[in-house]
Design a protein around this nucleic acid. Sequence first.
DNA 1: CGGCGAATTGACGGACGTCAACTGCTGTGG
DNA 2: CCACAGCAGTTGACGTCCGTCAATTCGCCG
Lengths: 254, 254
Amino acid sequence: MPLRTADLERVQALPLFAGVSDETFRAVTAGAFLQRFPAGTTLLMEGDMVDFLYVLLDGTVQLEGSWRDRETVLAVLRPVSTFILAAVVLDAEALMSAQTLERSDILMLSGEALRREMNTDARLAIAVAEELSGCYLGVVRSLKNQKLRGGVERLASYLMAQRARQGGGDTVILPYEKRVVASLLGMTPENLSRTWTMLADYGAHVNGREVTLARPAVIERLAKPDPLMDNLADDARGQTVTALRRTGSRTRGD
Amino acid sequence: MPLRTADLERVQALPLFAGVSDETFRAVTAGAFLQRFPAGTTLLMEGDMVDFLYVLLDGTVQLEGSWRDRETVLAVLRPVSTFILAAVVLDAEALMSAQTLERSDILMLSGEALRREMNTDARLAIAVAEELSGCYLGVVRSLKNQKLRGGVERLASYLMAQRARQGGGDTVILPYEKRVVASLLGMTPENLSRTWTMLADYGAHVNGREVTLARPAVIERLAKPDPLMDNLADDARGQTVTALRRTGSRTRGD
DNA sequence: CGGCGAATTGACGGACGTCAACTGCTGTGG
DNA sequence: CCACAGCAGTTGACGTCCGTCAATTCGCCG
């Protein structure tokens, strides 16, 4: 698949490359290639050595972890996001699998080139550190969310987050299958179904992927949002981007 | 409290400063100061702006998160470890509180100086990125542990981790109060108590803080350890340290 | 039209949190 | 030196949340 300059510009606009010289950027993206994957493609299995930094340009990607015969969704990514940066930096094996949920365009950058350029361009190394900090804080939020909130509250806060991202209206569209939502929120599909009916008492009604919130304020009160847990960073149209020094809300995703 | 050169040497030996020039190291530690805190001291509240990078030189520190009236322990740190690096890099507010569990010696480095020196020393910026990667992978492990394993399995794997760290013998000493262990493992103290009795069937017997494992292999089979979840990095005496490019197992702690 | 998988619903059991009472240890002060 | 207060830890009872199994419906795609 041809690598258009428009794609490269979108990549260069990422926080990861903010403040990085064109020269370094060209060096990092030199051997890069863009690939289109159908839905349901496994890009990476946990335990694999990671050779590339992945950049999701279009579509949806799910990060999942497994143990024995269990699986769980750790994050769902939206464009434009990078993933498995940490494993690339350490030249280590991946802790998570990555799988497309829709047809997705993914740019693959040489991990070796990225590590090499970090040595000569402190700006790049700093940008990587900042991106990683954002990723770290994102997972910490997820962990707090998982340990501190109950199922109903997790769903309520998920709805509030989606609502904010989708413009704050009274109806929210679930961006992917409910089974993915369930796993992301740490519950079974059956349990998610039952939780919907609990939320009906609070004015939330589900029809397919469409959720209408009769009294959003009540759901919000149930979710008890907390800036230290809920990442109010990407609001409304997603891209607030203050260029440098942003909280790197990416990688937590939806 | 006087800042001894022996302390500085221990700090310089950290992965965070591996490969960093003496000059940069001096610049970062210039305004640093060492402080001794009694047990139970809150060093940092979640939501506080972070001005310093903390380095635990001696003692034990607990990182905790809270929401509404609930609290949970996210990690317990042992010397020598840094903490809240991510918030320092982003010059942001902390997502976790930090509290001493014993009398602890803590070195505080100026966050502003660290950020400044990253600009001029790519080696430092890279080391920060590597440290952050390790922290990130640590939290991902915790999240997988929390979402994929049940309570008994989490306790079993916790025991195996402690056993490995303490030399692999048949008796494990819990390094701090059981209520802290319980919260770290995502359960209530009552529930932890009951889980001990379940483990008795597998040959684990508890007496105060001492746990004797009659058949360690059986506990291990219960824990089903997984290199992608259980961080077999710090083995035996803790400090394997391959200097550069280690998996930065720190920050997950015990 | 037929088939597959997602989603829902019900029934059931187990895991876990909550409340309460009791034990044992420790440090404090009379 | 002892009495007592306070807290960690344990144990029991109970209720709730949640996972599992099974059956059924729905929607989508071949």
